[in-house]
Amino acid sequence: MRNAFVAALTTIAAEDPRIFLITGDLGFSVFEDFAGRFPGRFINVGVAEANMVGIAAGLASCGKVAFTYSIAPFATIRCLEQIRIDVCYHNANVKIVGVGGGLAYGPLGATHHAIEDISIMRALPNMKVLSPADPVEADLATRAAVAVDGPVYIRLGKSGEPRVHSGQPDFEIGRAITVKDGTNITLVATGGLVYNALLAARELATQGIDARVISMHTIKPLDEEAILRAAHETAAIFTIEEHTLIGGLGSAVAEVLAESGNRKVLFQRIGIRDRFCHEVGSQEYLRELSGLSPQHIVSRVVGYLSRELSKDIM
């Protein structure tokens, strides 16, 4: 996803002289092309995320579109107050890009995991929160972020994510993408886990459960209509995120459902429990431990449905 983002940004920057890229000493072997082509618009501020965000806000106040870049927790939480005031309060045209959303930096440990960034960014007024599912969506999210005025957080994976989309889907901030149609239940996933949701849906199909899969690439503003439609048309909604259960995608969907008056639809959140990860291992291993593998998703869904659902829907 990182490469798709940089490629898109470099293409846009060739036509749009407002684009600036500011990094906190990250992006080795990633930004060379951008830096070579637009040396005056590439700024490495060193390992100084708070300064990076303040500088971006200053640039934005002078008409620039300022992209900041670091590892997701450092791009967001390490400089939170600068984001809240310098960027959000001023509705500054700053796009915050975090690489390594969720557990992507697996074995590097808890300091490098981003599992609270969605809730924290979502809480900030004026902030839009994008969480693309694959390189295709990362490309489209980057373009959409430039097209819209004001603060945007783009939560990227790292590299080598499998593609969810074979073609170019319609991508609009705030409009969920239905990746797979389905009539029995809905899996609402975000980020790299959309792929796992698809694999889970394939397995569920063999067990007679027809699952709709939605890529909720925008967590804020949330596509309430897609959720209400799913609540109306399918019997259960499961949210799936590589993120704490507190305040993220699952919470956002729960808020919509709770206030919708729909008392029929079943609802479960799949995500990371309220704890830091002290285990060591790859992203795949840590996803496994956190119950986020396709197999875990299938068991959660089947286990829950068999307890809750009446026979005719099964």
């Binding site: 930096y105 074995p107 590097l108 440990g109 808890a110 300091t111 490098h112 285990e279 060591v280 291992g281 790859s282 291993y285």
Partner: peptide
């Protein structure tokens, strides 16, 4: 995977 020493 399952080790005791992380990358930081």
């Amino acid at each position: 995977d399952g080790g005791l020493l992380a990358g930081h």
